Amino acid sequence: MTETLPGDAAAPDFERRAAACRDSLTGVPGGARSEDAWLFARLVAAREVRGERALLGLSAQAFAGLAQRHFVADAMALLPSSPHQPPMQQAVPIADETHAAFVASMCEWLIGLASRDVDAADAQCLAAILAHACLRPDHLWRDLGLAGRDDVTHMLTRFFPEVVARNREGLRWKKLLARELARATGGVPGPAPGCPGCEDFGFCFPLGN
């Protein structure tokens, strides 16, 4: 028998809610009309159930276009509301100028590397989502609400294969993205803005190296 710890019953089950939200967006329980629809439904659902849509970094226009391309009609309006969540938001300006510049540069760089096999608007949306995720203090796959590193690898291979080709050392993806952006813009390679808060920061950026 599994012991129930104090407060467990009241704790939001974000994983379950995200799965339900994902299925509502795609209209196909456990699936989607396309691989890209499945990916974006997962990315959106992970933030939606936490009241963190703004963290995706998408403008209202970009989000509406994404929803029109991949989600069922009126999916966002039909999502069940939760008393635990604050009102949903669209992207808000980044207060830190350095972080804002990083996001803008990362978006531009990624879009320049986008595969010709993907929808250009989808690539722009994913570039924004990835760039904003680099501001948060965890492994990239967790910041995106995915299941693990392999999910990120698969996503990058589909949309930005050149990024994957550059990771010959098997670096963590957030570190690799920051390094390659610095090299592309003439900067000094270093951590992404969110890296210092990650539990593995010392592993990726050991002192003296």
Rank of each mutant, 00 (worst) to 15 (best):
G145K: 03
C134Q: 10
A60Y: 03
P29Y: 07
G187F: 11
L176H: 15
R22F: 12
L39N: 02
K174T: 07
L25I: 07
F14Q: 02
A20R: 15
M88D: 12
F71R: 03
R53I: 02
I111G: 02
A95P: 00
A19Q: 14
D13Y: 09
G27I: 08
C204T: 08
R50C: 03
G31Y: 10
L144I: 03
V28C: 12
S81H: 05
G31A: 14
A120F: 08
R168Q: 10
A128D: 02
L58V: 07
D122E: 10
E48W: 13
A128M: 12
G190F: 04
E180F: 03
W38N: 11
A123N: 01
L56W: 10
A121T: 06
I129T: 02
D138V: 03
A20K: 09
A131G: 04
R158C: 02
A184D: 01
A67R: 13
R168I: 11
G112V: 10
D23Y: 09
D74T: 00
M155A: 03
T4K: 14
H139K: 13
L135E: 04
A123S: 06
F63E: 14
D143G: 15
A62Y: 06
M1A: 13
P193V: 08
A104N: 05
C21A: 15
S81N: 00
R166D: 03
A64S: 12
H154I: 09
A64Q: 09
R149H: 13
A120L: 12
I129M: 09
R116S: 11
C198E: 05
R168P: 00
F201D: 04
S24G: 12
P206V: 08
L79K: 01
A54D: 11
I111F: 12
F160I: 06
T2K: 14
S115Q: 03
P93R: 11
R136T: 06
D151H: 11
L156P: 04
Q61E: 14
R179T: 14
D138C: 10
D96V: 03
F203V: 11
D143L: 14
H99E: 15
S115A: 10
Q61T: 12
R136V: 06
E15G: 09
L5S: 11
R33C: 12
F40N: 08
R142Q: 14
D119Y: 06
F71C: 09
A11C: 13
P189T: 04
S82H: 04
F201Y: 15
F102K: 06
Q124V: 09
R179L: 08
G208R: 07
